[in-house]
C-alpha cells in the first residue's frame, strides 16, 4: 500500500470515510477546518451525507439521530465547539449509541486561541457533560496513528455501544506526514444494529432513550452502562512504551507531547540520562496499571502536558506515592521544544 502525504485533519476524514462513515455533521471552527472541507468535498461523492449544521448543538444532535437510525455517524470540532456538544454527548452516552467525535484541541479556556493545547483532558476523560458516563478516548500522536485510531474508534464504539472520541490537537490536525490509509470496510463488516430505529416492521418497536423517570429503572440503565465501562477497562487499555526497561526517570505524555517526548528520550540518553516514555494511547481507559508497574522501578515519573496538569491527576492516582511525580506543562498554546523538556528532566536526575 502506498503512502500518501496528508494533513492530520484530512487523514482523519479519509480514514473515517474508509471506515464506513455514512453521516457527518459539523460546524466550522479552527483548527479543524480542513477536516470539514475534506468531508464536504469527498463524503457526498462516496455515498455519504455531509451537512453543515446551524450550531455545534444541532450537529451533535444530528449525530444522535443518524446513529439512532443505525449508520456510522461522526462530528468534529475544536475545544469551544466540543463544550457546546456536551449536552448531546451525554444523551448519546446514556442512549447507548455508537458514534465518533473528533476534538482538535486548541488553547483555552474561553475563546483562547487556535494553537495546540491539551486543556480538554478532564472534559474528554471524566465525562464532560452531565451524569455518570465516559467516552472511549483515543489520543493519536502522529498523522498515521490518527488514521489508524479513527478506524479503531468506530470499531470500539460499535462493539460497546459507547461513543468514542479522537482527542488530538491543532498540531496533529495541521501537520503533514506520510500515511498508509486503512482499506475501506465492506458494508457487511459493520456490525448489525438490531436496536436501531429503522421502522418497526416484523419486530417490536425500538426506542432510543436516555430517560427513565423511575429511580430503579434509571439505576438499572446506569449499572448496565457501568458494567460496559468495566469491560472496556479490562479489554481496551492501550499505551506505548519507549526505552522503559532501564529507565530511572519515566516521562508520561500523550498526543503531540508524547511524540515530542520521544525525541527527549533520545537526547537524554545521548547524555547518559536513562529516560523512558510511557505514552497513553487510550486516555480513557487510562493505563493505570502500566504506569503503576513502571513507578515501582523508577525514581521519578514526570508528567508532561500542554495543560496545567490534568492527566497528571491520573498519573498520581496510578503512582500512589511509589515515585516522585513532578509535572511540567505549558499553557496558552505554547509548545515546548525537546530541549526545553530536557531541561525539566535534568532537574530530577543525578
Amino acid at each position: 500500500m502506498s503512502r500518501v502525504l496528508m494533513r492530520g485533519n484530512e487523514a482523519i476524514a479519509e480514514a473515517a470515510i474508509r471506515s464506513g462513515l455514512k453521516c457527518y455533521f459539523c460546524y466550522p471552527i479552527t483548527p479543524q477546518g480542513e477536516l470539514v472541507e475534506y468531508m464536504a468535498r469527498e463524503l457526498p461523492k462516496r455515498g455519504g451525507v455531509f451537512l453543515q449544521a446551524e450550531s455545534e448543538v444541532a450537529a451533535i444532535n444530528m449525530v444522535y439521530g443518524a446513529a439512532a437510525a443505525g449508520v456510522r455517524a461522526m462530528t468534529s470540532s475544536s475545544s469551544p465547539g466540543i463544550s457546546l456538544k456536551q449536552e448531546g454527548i451525554s444523551y448519546i452516552a446514556m442512549a447507548r449509541l455508537p458514534c465518533v467525535i473528533v476534538n482538535m484541541m486548541r488553547g483555552g479556556p474561553g475563546l483562547g486561541n487556535i494553537a495546540p493545547a491539551q486543556g480538554d483532558y478532564f472534559q474528554a476523560t471524566k465525562g464532560g457533560g452531565h451524569g455518570d458516563y465516559h467516552l472511549i478516548v483515543l489520543a493519536p500522536s502522529t498523522v498515521p496513528e490518527a488514521a489508524e485510531l479513527v478506524r479503531l474508534a468506530f470499531e470500539l464504539s460499535d462493539r460497546y455501544r459507547v461513543p468514542a472520541m479522537i482527542l488530538a490537537d491543532g498540531m496533529i490536525g495541521q501537520m503533514m506526514e506520510p500515511v498508509e490509509l486503512p482499506e475501506p470496510v465492506e458494508p457487511e463488516d459493520i456490525p448489525e444494529r438490531p436496536w436501531a430505529v429503522t421502522g418497526a416492521k416484523g419486530r417490536p418497536k425500538n426506542v432510543i432513550t436516555s430517560f427513565d423517570l423511575e429511580p430503579e429503572g434509571l439505576k438499572e440503565m446506569s449499572l448496565a452502562l457501568q458494567e460496559t465501562y468495566r469491560e472496556i477497562e479490562r479489554n481496551e487499555v492501550r499505551w506505548e512504551e519507549v526505552e522503559t526497561e532501564d529507565a530511572e526517570l519515566l516521562i508520561v505524555a500523550y498526543g503531540t507531547m508524547g511524540r515530542i517526548a520521544k525525541t527527549v528520550v533520545r537526547l537524554a540518553r545521548q547524555e547518559g540520562i536513562k529516560v523512558g516514555l510511557l505514552r497513553p494511547i487510550t486516555l480513557w481507559p487510562f493505563p493505570y496499571e502500566p504506569v503503576r508497574e513502571l513507578a515501582e522501578r523508577v525514581r521519578t515519573v514526570l508528567t508532561v502536558e500542554l495543560s496545567a496538569g490534568q492527566m497528571w491527576e491520573d498519573v498520581r492516582l496510578a503512582v500512589e506515592g511509589r515515585a516522585e511525580t513532578p509535572f511540567y506543562g505549558e499553557l496558552g498554546g505554547v509548545v515546548p521544544s525537546p530541549k526545553r523538556i530536557l531541561e525539566e528532566v535534568r532537574k530530577y536526575v543525578g
Binding site: N61, Y64, I208, T209
Partner: peptide, 25 residues
Amino acid sequence: CDFVQAAHGRACAVATGIKRARPDL
C-alpha cells in the same frame, strides 16, 4: 412505532439526522 427521545428543543436536529441517514423512513 419506533421512537427516539430527544434533548430539550433538539427534536428537529435529531429528526434531520434520522431522515438524512434513512430517507425511506
